[in-house]
């Protein structure tokens, strides 16, 4: 029990994918007009990250490792995540036209997002047991969604505040992302 809990904390905060491991940073900067749009995008990214990582890890542990086909893992990971993204996009267009109109580009870009691939790679080489790996990927996906939300709130305040013209927009985003990632280093040693 305690292990599960600390695994989730470790994955979500201490080893946060976007801000500490610097994987999938591009999603942080994806355009969002308002905070509520980012909430949707964060949910969607969780829906891509968690299932894709789970399937990747399962296939890796149950098929590739027993058969000794580990050199194929990159090919497998990319195709699985692309498949899941395509499936999600398809369902979005069918069921939620507004959501699709808002986020379809960001969702499709997630198909080869380094957050998915990197998470799968890191976990496939780690020495912990398969259930712990799955729990870790749940925590990592949740942590990624949280960092998206935090950064969107930050960006909204930056956009609305009066800032020097030279720094307005992307420069300030990059600087604040750097400071945010430094701040998250403060969680080191929490678990």
């Amino acid at each position: 029990m305690a292990t599960l809990f600390s695994t989730i904390i470790a994955a979500a905060l201490v080893n946060n994918l976007a801000l500490v491991q610097l994987l999938g940073v591009s999603t942080l900067f994806s355009f969002s007009r308002q905070f509520s749009a980012t909430v949707e995008l964060a949910l969607l990214s969780f829906l891509v990250l968690f299932p894709a990582a789970c399937i990747n890890l399962l296939l890796h542990a149950l098929i590739l490792q027993p058969l000794g086909l580990e050199f194929l893992q990159l090919f497998l990971f990319v195709s699985v995540s692309a498949g899941i993204t395509a499936l999600l996009g398809q369902q979005l267009v069918k069921l939620f036209p507004l959501l699709a109109r808002r986020h379809i580009r960001a969702v499709l870009l997630m198909c080869s997002n380094s957050a998915v691939i990197g998470l799968s790679f890191l976990q496939s080489t780690s020495l912990s047991s398969l259930p712990i790996k799955l729990v870790y990927s749940f925590g990592a996906a949740a942590g990624f969604a949280i960092s998206l939300l935090v950064f969107a709130a930050l960006r909204q305040r930056i956009d609305q505040g009066s800032s020097p013209a030279a720094l307005r927009g992307v420069p300030l985003y990059l600087i604040s992302a750097g400071i945010a990632s430094m701040a998250l280093l403060g969680f080191a040693g929490l678990v």
Partner: peptide, 9 residues
């Protein structure tokens, strides 16, 4: 519209 469709103003 930009708010509804999450597009730039």
């Amino acid at each position: 519209l930009s708010l509804l469709l999450n597009e730039a103003r």
